[in-house]
């Protein structure tokens, strides 16, 4: 059962992994337990509480009441994961270029196919798509380029299919 621990984020495992493993080992294996751990892993990815508590622990253990450090940590926490200004600039640039490409694609498709659901889906997916592009570019930048293409491609395809389904259903109502 300890393999389930790998589903949690690395930072979370570093903080709670050992004690979590001890509690997990003390419980009888069951589908309910697996679901509980899976739910916890999804929650840990979606709501990384650990960043906040970890910074508090650092302060308590090593840095005392150094207000400068506290302010720096709070600024980092407020800005989300560590992104350098360069990371943000690159992500913004990629997002703007994607917006231009998407706008061009939409105009071109509208000229040819008018307001077909497949074209409308391109319009509706553009807003979440741009957020997706920014996020993936910023957070996956240090990953292998194949990983980036795969994650972004899968996200884009999923988004398009959902919007297409919505447009097809909407056009039949």
């Amino acid at each position: 059962m300890s393999w389930l621990l790998r589903l949690y984020p690395a930072q979370w495992r570093e903080r709670y992994g050992e004690e979590f493993g001890a509690v997990l080992a003390s419980q009888r294996a069951s589908p309910g337990l697996v679901l509980d751990v899976l739910g916890g892993a999804i929650d840990a990815h979606l709501h990384p509480q650990i960043q906040h508590s970890h910074s508090k622990q650092i302060l308590g253990d090593n840095m005392g009441d150094d207000m400068t450090t506290l302010e720096m940590l709070q600024r980092c926490a407020a800005g989300g994961p560590k992104l350098s200004p360069r990371d943000r600039r690159i992500a913004s640039l990629v997002m703007i270029l994607s917006a231009l490409v998407l706008a061009g694609l939409y105009i071109g498709l509208t000229k040819i196919y008018r307001a077909a659901p497949a074209v409308e889906a391109v319009f509706y997916m553009s807003f979440p798509f741009l957020a997706l592009v920014y996020g993936q570019t910023a957070y996956l930048r240090k990953r292998h380029w194949l990983t980036q293409i795969f994650v972004l491609g899968a996200g884009l395809l999923g988004l398009y299919l959902v919007m297409l389904a919505v447009c097809v259903v909407g056009s039949k109502l």
Partner: peptide
């Protein structure tokens, strides 16, 4: 009986809020 996923989800939140 709280499962470990629920227990540590709640513990992390309680710790983060101090």
């Amino acid at each position: 009986r709280l499962g470990p996923g629920t227990l540590y989800g709640a513990l992390a939140r309680l710790e983060a809020r101090g």
